[in-house]
Amino acid sequence: MAASDYRELSLNGLWKNNPAIVQLLGLCPLLAVTGSVVNALGLAAATTLVLLCSNTAVSLIRNVVSDAVRLPVFVMIIAAAVTCIELLMQAFTYELYQILGIFLPLITTNCVILGRADAYASKNPLPLAMCDGLMMGLGFGVILVLLGALRELLGTGALFANMDLLFGPGAADWHWVMVQDYQAFLLAILPPGAFIFTGLIIAGKNLIDSEIKRRQDALKARPVKGSKRVRVTGTIS
């Protein structure tokens, strides 16, 4: 397990193979609960923890479970992790738990989690499986928070409203009003806004990838400094 393995897993989870904007998995919660940053953060934290726990458990039992019962066992592991996360949220962030509602238990059927358990964790040792789960969760969470921030900012003219639901009473003052007397842009908060901004984020990533590829191709085409060109002269008879 070289350091390059962990770098590749990090790059895949956060950018090259991001589950939200490359694989386009888990779009139902991505589009449904990202009306604000606090909602996005809550779901991002829950999904990342479930990914980390499920990948860890699946990797530990990968040589014990037969192929015949592999998928049902994976689903049971994911469901148990989701249940634990739900109980923790009920105990410490009950109001946010109520806001997220059905989308918390639906993490059990999130294609990102089952897909990583089956495609990676079941075939790799524990450290790599844990790293994969963490990076995929962070990659998914970053897009959730970015989308939530864009929709909240353009929809209400403010950021970080109701952060006390997640971080306690001390976070009540985190609310940052960007524009006073802002006329609410309802499209950003409503479901069509989620589709629009998700498309814009995907388009932005594709543009960045295209520019990176263009620069790499330009560097490859550039002659190496100090190299000499050999000029061939003569006639062909």
Rank of each mutant, 00 (worst) to 15 (best):
G137N: 09
Q180H: 05
L200T: 05
A91Q: 14
T83Y: 09
T198N: 11
D132L: 08
R231I: 15
M130W: 07
G133M: 04
Y120C: 03
R231V: 13
G13V: 01
N17M: 04
V145Q: 00
Q180F: 05
A119E: 11
S10C: 14
A44E: 05
V112M: 09
D67L: 08
F160T: 04
S210M: 09
T235Y: 11
S237D: 10
I85C: 05
K228P: 00
N162F: 05
G141V: 03
M178Q: 15
F197L: 10
P192G: 08
W15S: 00
N63H: 15
P127A: 09
N12S: 13
G168Y: 06
L159K: 11
A57M: 15
R222C: 04
I85N: 02
H175E: 09
V230G: 04
M76E: 01
G42I: 03
A80T: 01
N162T: 03
F74G: 02
D181L: 11
L49I: 13
Y97K: 11
N206R: 10
R214M: 05
L96S: 03
A129D: 12
S10A: 15
N162S: 08
N55Y: 00
V22Y: 05
C131F: 01
A46T: 05
E86Y: 06
T156V: 01
D173F: 10
E152M: 07
L147T: 02
C53L: 14
L49G: 08
I102A: 11
D67P: 00
M1A: 15
A218M: 13
F92Y: 11
G35R: 13
I212S: 13
A81N: 05
L104H: 07
S227E: 11
M163Y: 08
F197M: 11
L52N: 02
A161M: 12
V142K: 00
T198A: 08
T108C: 09
M163P: 07
S10Y: 00
G170A: 10
A158C: 08
L60C: 10
A218N: 12
L11W: 04
T156Q: 06
S237C: 10
F103D: 08
D67S: 15
N17R: 12
A79R: 01
G204D: 06
F92H: 12
L166Y: 07
I102M: 08
L27T: 14
G193H: 04
A46S: 14
A40H: 04
P127E: 10
S122K: 05
L219S: 12
L150R: 02
P105W: 00
L11T: 01
V82D: 07
H175V: 02
L25E: 13
